[in-house]
C-alpha cells in the first residue's frame, strides 16, 4: 500500500526540484549550443542562461520566477494500491502544490480567468492540472512535475491530408515566426508536436511530446523519427538564435507524437517548452520507496499501443 503521506511528500519534493534544478539533458543541450554559437550577443545570452542554471542550484533559488502553471503527470501501475484511492492521490498533489507555492516559493500564477481572483497557492478549478495514464502488470506510481509557462509558444491548426508534410513544415515555421521574434518563446527550447487525434488530443500530445521526452530521444516509428530530425535541422537553419537575435539555432530537439485521426483531417498542435525546462520525475514503489529521476518515461510501448487487445504488450513489458 502506497501511503497518502508518501505521495504528498514526493509531490512537494518534485515541485521543489523542478523549480530549481534543470535536467541534465536540457542543460547539456544548451551547453552545446553555447559552444557552437558564432553570433556574439546570442553567445552572451546563452552563457548567461548557463550561469543562471548554476546559480539556481548553488543558491537553491527558483531558476525562473515565472514558475508557469505547475502540473502533474501521474502514471498508475495497474496493480498499485494507493491509500485512500485516486481521490486521496489527487488531494495529496493539490496539498503539496499549495504548500510548495509558499515554501519554495513558486509564484502564485493561477487565477480565476474572469474575476482574476488569486488564492495565492496555485490551486483552483482544474488547477493544478493532473493527467493520468496507466501501465499493466506493475504496482508502482510515477509522478512527474512540470512547470511550464503558458502565454506564448504554441498553436493549433487543422490541416488536411492534402496539406501533408509540407503543410506541417509551414505551420512549424509559422510558429517560429510568431514566437521566436523577440524571444517570446524563451528559446532555446524543445518543440513538441502532436499530429492527429481530435483537436484536444493533438494539443495534449504536443505538450507531452515537448515536456515528457528527453533531448535526443526519438520516436520508435522510423518515419516519425526521421521527420523529427528533418524538422530539427529546418528549425535551426532559420537564422534565429536566442531572444530573436541572429544566431545559429535555438531548438534543442523536436519530438513528435501521433494519434489516429479522422480520415479527412490532419490536426496538428505545436508546443514550445522553453529553456526554463522544469520537469522532475519519481517512481514510488509498492513498498513506499521513492526513486527520483530526470527521464519521465511517460511514453511507454503500452502508452503508444495500436492494437485491439493489450495482452501481447502486457506480456512484453512484464
Amino acid at each position: 500500500m502506497i501511503s497518502r503521506e508518501t505521495i504528498h511528500a514526493t509531490a512537494f519534493e518534485l515541485n521543489r526540484l523542478a523549480a530549481i534544478q534543470i535536467p541534465g539533458d536540457a542543460r547539456q543541450a544548451v551547453g552545446r549550443m553555447y559552444k557552437r554559437e558564432t553570433n556574439k550577443i546570442s553567445k552572451y545570452v546563452l552563457g548567461q542562461i548557463l550561469e543562471n542554471y548554476r546559480i539556481a542550484v548553488d543558491e537553491q533559488r527558483p531558476m525562473c520566477a515565472d514558475t508557469g502553471l505547475p502540473r502533474f503527470y501521474v502514471k498508475v501501475g495497474n496493480e498499485a494500491a494507493v491509500e485512500g484511492g485516486m481521490v486521496a492521490l489527487e488531494g495529496a498533489i493539490r496539498q503539496a502544490t499549495a504548500e510548495a507555492t509558499a515554501a519554495i516559493p513558486i509564484r502564485p500564477n493561477r487565477v480565476h480567468p474572469i474575476s482574476r481572483h488569486d488564492y495565492n497557492n496555485n490551486v483552483g478549478v482544474h488547477a493544478p492540472t493532473v493527467d493520468y495514464s496507466f501501465e499493466p502488470n506493475v504496482g508502482w506510481l510515477e509522478l512527474t512535475a512540470v512547470h511550464k509557462g503558458g502565454l506564448f509558444g504554441g498553436d493549433y491548426r487543422m490541416l488536411f491530408p492534402a496539406d501533408g508534410i509540407p503543410g506541417l513544415k509551414r505551420f512549424f515555421l509559422d510558429c517560429i515566426s510568431e514566437f521566436f521574434r523577440r524571444g517570446m518563446s524563451c528559446q532555446p527550447l524543445v518543440v513538441g508536436i502532436g499530429i492527429g487525434g481530435t483537436k484536444d488530443t493533438c494539443v495534449r500530445l504536443a505538450k507531452e511530446a515537448g515536456c515528457l521526452r528527453i533531448v535526443g530521444d526519438r520516436n520508435p516509428e522510423p518515419e516519425i523519427a526521421a521527420l523529427e530530425e528533418e524538422l530539427l535541422q529546418l528549425g535551426n537553419s532559420t537564422g534565429f538564435g536566442v531572444m530573436g537575435l541572429p544566431g545559429d539555432g535555438a531548438i534543442m530537439d523536436v519530438h513528435i507524437e501521433i494519434a489516429y485521426a479522422h480520415t479527412g483531417g490532419m490536426p496538428v498542435a505545436i508546443q514550445h517548452f522553453c529553456f526554463a525546462h522544469r520537469r522532475m520525475s519519481a517512481r514510488i514503489e509498492g513498498d513506499g520507496s521513492v526513486h527520483y529521476r530526470e527521464d519521465p518515461g511517460w511514453f511507454t510501448p503500452f502508452y503508444r499501443r495500436d492494437s485491439v487487445g493489450f495482452e501481447e504488450l502486457e506480456e512484453q513489458e512484464a
Binding site: 520566477a65 487565477v111 488569486d118 524571444g183 529553456f275
Partner: peptide
C-alpha cells in the same frame, strides 16, 4: 534570456515596500 530568475533574484537586496498586495495579489 528571459528566464534568468535566480540571477536577477540575486541582485535584489531588499523588498522596501509592497503596495496594492491585497487588491491585486502577490503576482
Amino acid at each position: 534570456g528571459y528566464g534568468l530568475g535566480a540571477m536577477y533574484g540575486r541582485g535584489i537586496q531588499k523588498v522596501k515596500e509592497v503596495y496594492w498586495k491585497d487588491e491585486l495579489g502577490l503576482a
